[in-house]
Design a protein around this nucleic acid. Structure first.
Lengths: 209, 209
DNA sequence: TTGTTGATTTCGCAA
DNA sequence: TTGCGAAGTCAACAA
């Protein structure tokens, strides 16, 4: 990992074009050749960057980074304040817990929270529109689009006389008011999930299978 | 901007929890207090981070960064390889060109590409569902959700006897086959846009107004 | 390889 | 301030 503090201007030409006027910035060159241009504020997102795979051609006072599909990041370096490099080695990587996949797993083990007497019928149910789990669908954040999606699936399943009547339940930690309004207007039921409750509850439902 | 190269472990607790095993990494502390943990590869996204506004409490061998809504990023520092700081000052910021707003502007000036005799009626048309421009809608990438959205608006407008009959046209540079199938099934017309053509064409349509 | 969806999304605009 | 849609989205996962 190479760290350069420099006064520079930056040009990007790819799907869009972007320019950065001259200023003091941090330039990061990673081991895979990717380049990041950071300012002293904003979010974790760089002002400009080039993702790997890419190639860095270094000339005096100018870096030209070329990406896989021809995008170019050009850094004009006016003054170098600092230029250091450290070998960091490979990173063991991040371990996450508590994302939607995990929530769905917990919900599949405890379908009772969706309503009294509710059970898990099928987790991956293929349909003509796309492969989904219909009987126990969940989402971390439910928007108006989620309502449309659920509505499509319910409608499709009701065309099958062997399954009909099928109802839809929107189960999520957060449901926007707009989504709730639209959902209830279309006959879908809304259930707010408590992630901590799901996690702490004993998985009695598993013994039913 | 403070740059620290250190062997560290990192824990994040917020909407999710995440852990990083011990490894050599770059820690960035920006002027606004935000913290970024970068490895020597991957994308421009840090392995872990804390967005501003936040507060950094530094103890020997341990950083605790607390976010606005109580999330915490804890960095256990086992060994410091380097620790430097540079004042960079404010950044003039990025100038972009060629994104969707630009495309919509071009399309508004040349509604004829949507079909013969087509005109721009209204650009920002408020509806009960939300504020949208209905008569000349465009999108850079059209997915199945865009079809649903357009369908909602067309349906809503047709309830108004003063406007009815209203038809929908899906105009975009890219329309996925799934979206096209669904759109045509619902009576929506699909038009593929050529960005370069729109940009280069003389804006004759403007003289019509 | 391609397509679809989630994200500690982030970011920008508009009401 | 809040809400909504785009993003050089990226990244994980399934077909």
């Amino acid at each position: 990992m190479r760290l350069v503090i420099a006064r520079c201007t930056v040009n990007y030409a790819g799907r869009l074009t972007a320019r950065l006027p001259a200023a003091l910035r941090l330039l990061i060159v990673k081991a895979d050749g990717s380049v990041l241009v950071h300012s002293d504020g904003g979010s974790y997102k760089p002002l400009n960057w080039m993702s790997p795979p890419c190639r860095l051609a270094e000339e005096p006072g100018r870096w030209v980074v070329t990406g896989k599909s021809g995008e170019t990041l050009t850094v004009h370096i006016e003054e170098i304040i600092s230029d250091t490099a450290y070998p960091l080695g490979a990173d063991p990587g991040l371990v996450k817990d508590g994302v939607e996949a995990h929530l769905q797993e917990l919900l599949a083990a405890q379908p009772g929270v969706l309503g009294d007497g509710w059970r898990l019928i099928r987790r991956e149910y293929p349909t003509a529109i796309g492969p989904v789990d219909l009987m126990c669908r969940d989402a971390v954040g439910v928007s108006i689009d989620a309502v449309e999606q659920l509505c499509r699936y319910v409608e499709l399943l009701n065309r099958d006389p062997l399954l009909e009547p099928v109802g839809g339940v929107l189960a999520a930690q957060v449901i926007t008011p707009q989504a709730r309004t639209l959902a209830e207007d279309r006959g879908l039921r809304c259930v707010i999930l408590d992630y901590d409750e799901l996690r702490q509850a004993p998985r009695n439902d598993l013994t039913l299978f």
